[in-house]
Design a protein around this nucleic acid. Structure first.
Length: 464
RNA sequence: UCCUCGCUAGCUCAACGGCAGAGCGUUCGGCUGUUAACCGAAAUGUUGGUGGUUCGAAUCCACCGCGGGGAGCCA
């Protein structure tokens, strides 16, 4: 394996004049009279290491088979580069060719490719500049998220991925079964599927949210967070939806919506700042080649205070605007994409937190306000991608929660343990959910969520 | 799921009822301590699939498949 010190990132920071070895894949190759230039990438950083191969070092026949995509080990000397473009380069003493990459059939040649094409070769796209940067940022962002919560004393809780409770209520779920689909057992009288012989002896699903279980842990460990895969079986075909995605869900006890909003803002600023510091080259690349508003947007988020408006205020703003809405603005209906984007992109030009939505359009567990009409919900809206965070203060009062369940036609018995939390030592608490890939879109300027996750799963598509 | 646009060389696109084209990539040659190099030449096609209209279909029509954008659902 390549041990610390041997990566391209570290070699590029070495003082010239010493021998070194580099392992990696050839990204480009250029030939001059009596000299070859190889750019070697091992994924450790945005920059490649330029290897200079003088004539006679390697047999010309072997040199010809060292093409874009081939894998090599180069032993040589790190030297100061006489040309512009890099400070340090490697003068090759010998090259070992691990594997060739036939230039006629290797699809990832040195040219511009569309994201759609690269998505079709998801097994090779990590070697491209763009996806190298995407997945380094993804790694740094995941780490920053843990760093933030660990620094703040939050407990990382692993909520279940398989769940037999269909009460999560956040959308269509994938069923999980070991029953023979060609020969399903049926109940004699009703003809319904008999789940008693299924693995869990009842219908089971992939989780759509860890929130309810996170609340259990918040009622013991005070501040907790989840960070794991989430599944939605919705037939959503948009650049913002995946069937499998990663979600971050903090849950904080002894806290209200104000604390929740403050946490969300501090969280976003911290992780953006971390990634900007750690992946400076990658972010610079996104700003230059993918979306030239990335840097200014991120700087704007880190340095500005988020705007706060209530749902009612937002509706007033929208009603007063002279925009022609495709969907009418009306108190009581949910804000449409066009409304959210107008608020965050045109009116405030920075992230906006909208709070206190009508209770009819929000989930049963959100805390009821005294006005009897609204609940303590919050959505964080960000320019370009819309809703990035959805959260709320949770209803901690047993009687009110029971009423809300009934209003929404939900069965109390299915929520017995959730209600128990309100029976035994209930406290005000709050939390939010954040789509990891949505945040990735924000950080990278990438346009399609399928291009910020290694292997996207969407309706009709689960390749690789 | 709905609306809309698209599917032609490895990739990105042109040709819009009458001989299948270009750029990039690739290959070969030239030039050059090169940097998304440059100059010259060459190879590469069942025009997404199945039917239909027509003397003749990449082009028009129908259905299917796949992809982009917008909407809904949502994170």
């Amino acid at each position: 394996m390549i041990r610390p010190g041997g990566t391209v990132r570290e070699l590029l920071n070495q003082i010239p004049g010493q021998n070194a070895t580099v392992h990696g894949w050839v990204k480009t190759r250029r030939d001059s009279k009596g000299i070859h230039f190889l750019h070697i990438s091992d994924g450790s950083c945005f920059s490649d290491l330029q290897v200079v191969v003088e004539e006679g070092i390697v047999p010309e026949e072997q040199m010809r088979s060292i093409t874009t995509g081939s894998s090599v080990r180069v032993d040589g000397e790190l030297v100061e580069s006489p040309a512009a473009g890099q400070k340090v380069e490697m003068k090759a003493h010998s090259i070992h060719l691990y594997g060739t990459a036939d230039p006629v059939s290797y699809p990832l040649q040195k040219k511009g490719h569309t994201m759609e094409f690269l998505r079709e070769i998801a097994h090779l796209r990590p070697r491209s500049n763009t996806f190298g940067s995407v997945f380094r940022v993804r790694n740094a962002l995941a780490h920053a998220i843990h760093t933030f919560f660990q620094n703040e004393g939050f407990l990382y809780v692993h909520t279940p991925i398989l769940t037999a409770s269909d009460c999560e209520g956040a959308g269509a779920m994938f069923g999980v079964t070991t029953l023979d689909l060609m020969n399903l057992p049926r109940e004699k009288q009703s003809g319904k599927i008999d789940y008693s012989s299924d693995f869990f002896a009842k219908p089971a699903f992939l989780t759509v949210s860890g929130q309810l279980e996170a609340e259990i842990f918040a009622m013991a460990f005070t501040n907790v967070y989840t960070f794991g895969p989430t599944f939605r079986a919705e037939n959503s075909n948009t650049p913002r939806h995946l069937a499998e995605f990663w979600m971050i869900e903090p849950e904080i006890a002894f806290a209200d919506l104000k604390d929740d909003m403050e946490l969300a803002e501090r969280f976003l600023k911290f992780v953006i700042n971390e990634v900007m510091n750690r992946c400076e080259d990658d972010i610079a690349f996104f700003d230059k080649r993918i979306d030239n508003t990335v840097l200014s947007t991120l700087n704007n988020v880190v340095s500005s205070d988020f705007e706060h408006v209530t749902y009612t205020e937002a509706v007033n703003i929208l009603e007063k605007s002279d925009k022609d809405w495709e969907f009418p603005v009306k108190w009581g209906s949910d804000l449409q994409s066009e409304h959210e984007r107008y608020l965050t992109e045109d009116v405030f030009k920075k992230p906006v937190i909208v709070t206190d939505y009508p209770k009819e359009i929000k989930a049963f567990y959100m805390r009821a306000n005294d006005d009897g009409k609204t609940v303590r919900a919050m959505d964080v809206l960000a320019p370009r991608i819309g809703e990035i965070i959805g959260g709320s203060q949770r209803e901690e009062r047993l009687d009110v929660l029971k009423t809300r369940l009934a209003e929404q036609g939900l069965e109390e018995s299915a929520y017995w343990w959730y209600l128990d939390l309100r029976r035994f030592g209930t406290v005000p608490h709050a939390g939010f959910g954040l789509g990891f890939e949505r945040l990735m879109l924000y950080l990278t300027g990438m346009k399609n969520i399928r291009d910020v996750i290694p292997f996207p799963r969407t309706p009709g598509s689960a390749d690789f």
